[in-house]
Simulated scan of single mutants.
Amino acid sequence: MKGRIMAILSVVLVTVLVNGFIFMTVTRRVGNNFSSASQRKMIDVSRYLPFEEGSDLARVDSSLKFEEGDDLPVLDGAAALVPVYASVIDNCYPEGSVTYEGGAFSDENFYGENFADDSVMQYQNTIRGFDAMVDGSVDLFFTAHPSAEQLESAAEKGVELEIVPVGLEAFVFFVNSKNPVDGLTADQIRDIYTGKITNWNEVGGPSKLINPLVRIKGSGSQTMMEKFMGKEIVLTHNPMNILGGSIGYSFRYYLSGMVADTGVKMLAVDGAYPDAENIRNGSYPLTASFYVVYRKDNDNKNIKELVEWLLSDEGQRLIEDCGYVALPK
């Protein structure tokens, strides 16, 4: 009996020691390793619903007012551009043109999929929304520049596209707010993503592995990253990287205005921080246009009228009021 008790106590002691070792060497380190930069954030679409009191939308004195009975263009777009196209609807469309399956918006959907089929606002995100525009169920798609694969897919279906720049945004890199590194050069970032730089101490940070993160193929941010890198990214994943500090990438306003994650910070690139002024004056090197895309054979005359309005002073002011940057005059 005594031997049995000793055996049980030995098992308990070993279990405690093993769990303690795992906590100290893995769990505790991961909890303090800057890796909140890797957390994937979804936007709260309910903040950007047209015609709803309290929605976080830009409002201008618009001269373009569609009426009930008009052939209203259906709008969709990338997650980062929801505030723009939702604000367009709120300013230019008749109330009642945004509808929901079940009669009310439900934020239990992963991408807000309960916009009804007859709603002028849809939210299918970059990959599915682009395909919907190509297939004809969406008229105007708001996005970063389409990827080569998306353009090829449209061409294979015999669809020609109009791609019109309507505003400016910054492509940004971000890390945990506790990471002492505040900026990198473009070459350093490329070296991180090609595996030439693997530790933060090589770029002025602590002795900690770098955990470079990538996004879904075909997403706007992944397309921008591949353009920045000049090739498709193929990471040789080191399983120990999870113990290091993460670096990720996104678009400026999506990160700072929409998900507003105070646990991360954007990095300066080549000495320039990605604020609105540095985007306007061109000193931030990773400034990119964002676009509206539509089929050339779409005969809805209100599409071109809406695009022209977006390029007008009123439309550009709306883009600025949404938190983005207007095109240079």
Rank of each mutant, 00 (worst) to 15 (best):
I247T: 10
I247R: 04
I247W: 05
I247S: 03
G248W: 10
G248D: 14
G248M: 08
G248R: 06
G248N: 15
G248A: 14
Y249L: 01
Y249A: 02
Y249N: 14
Y249R: 00
Y249T: 09
Y249E: 09
F251R: 00
F251L: 05
F251T: 01
F251D: 01
R252V: 02
Y253H: 13
Y254F: 15
Y254M: 12
Y254V: 01
L255R: 14
S256V: 15
G257N: 07
G257K: 04
G257Q: 02
M258R: 06
M258L: 15
V259C: 02
A260Q: 13
A260H: 12
A260E: 15
D261H: 06
D261R: 08
T262A: 13
T262Y: 03
G263Y: 07
G263H: 07
G263T: 14
V264Q: 02
V264G: 03
V264T: 15
V264I: 15
V264A: 08
M266Y: 09
M266R: 05
M266Q: 14
A268P: 13
V269E: 01
V269P: 01
V269S: 01
V269G: 01
D270G: 11
D270H: 11
D270K: 08
G271T: 03
G271D: 03
A272R: 07
A272T: 13
A272I: 13
Y273C: 02
P274F: 06
A276H: 11
A276E: 13
